[in-house]
Simulated scan of single mutants.
Amino acid sequence: MAYDDGLAALMRDDLAHTPGISEKKMFGGLCFLLNGHMVCGVHKGGGMFRVGKPAEPDALNIEGCAPLSFTGRPMGGMVDASEDLIGDDARRAALMALALAHAGSLPPK
């Protein structure tokens, strides 16, 4: 697989009691969606969180977080998270809260 199953398990556990969560293979990894909207995912070497453009500066202040850029251009509202960040419960929880707030603000698909 192109992603770390252990990192996926951490995210899966974080989201286990959140109604409306589903999983989908995307971007060469695994993404978690809330009512059809991407919340977070894992890829080779780490993960990503969709925090939305307004919360992006707050997310980027978390150690181990960087702008997400698969194609060389930053993807606004999305951040890349290092393996170390995802392995840290407090930092992962902070990003997860931002991502869930963003996804929860969108109408269900």
Rank of each mutant, 00 (worst) to 15 (best):
S82M: 06
P54Q: 10
R12Y: 06
Y3S: 09
C65M: 11
M26F: 11
D4K: 01
R91E: 05
L106S: 03
F70S: 11
D88R: 05
L30T: 03
D14L: 03
G29W: 01
C31N: 13
G87Y: 07
M11G: 04
H37F: 08
G28N: 10
L100D: 01
A2N: 15
P54T: 10
S69T: 10
G76F: 07
L33H: 11
M78N: 08
D5Y: 04
K25D: 13
G36N: 13
G45I: 04
A9T: 11
D14H: 04
A103M: 09
M78D: 03
G36C: 13
A99I: 06
A90K: 15
L68R: 00
D80L: 08
E56R: 00
I21R: 09
V42R: 00
M11D: 05
G29M: 08
S105G: 15
D5A: 15
H102K: 11
R50M: 13
C31R: 03
A66W: 02
M48E: 08
E83Y: 01
P107S: 09
G46Y: 00
I86G: 00
T71A: 14
A9Y: 04
N61Y: 01
A90I: 14
G104K: 06
M26E: 07
G47F: 02
F70G: 07
A16P: 03
L60D: 06
F49E: 02
G76H: 14
L98D: 05
A99L: 12
G76V: 09
P74A: 15
E83W: 02
D14F: 00
D80A: 15
E83D: 15
G46R: 00
H102L: 04
A101C: 08
K24A: 15
M48D: 07
G45W: 02
L95M: 13
A81Q: 03
L34H: 12
L95R: 01
A8K: 04
A9C: 08
P19L: 08
H37C: 11
E83P: 14
M38T: 05
C65V: 15
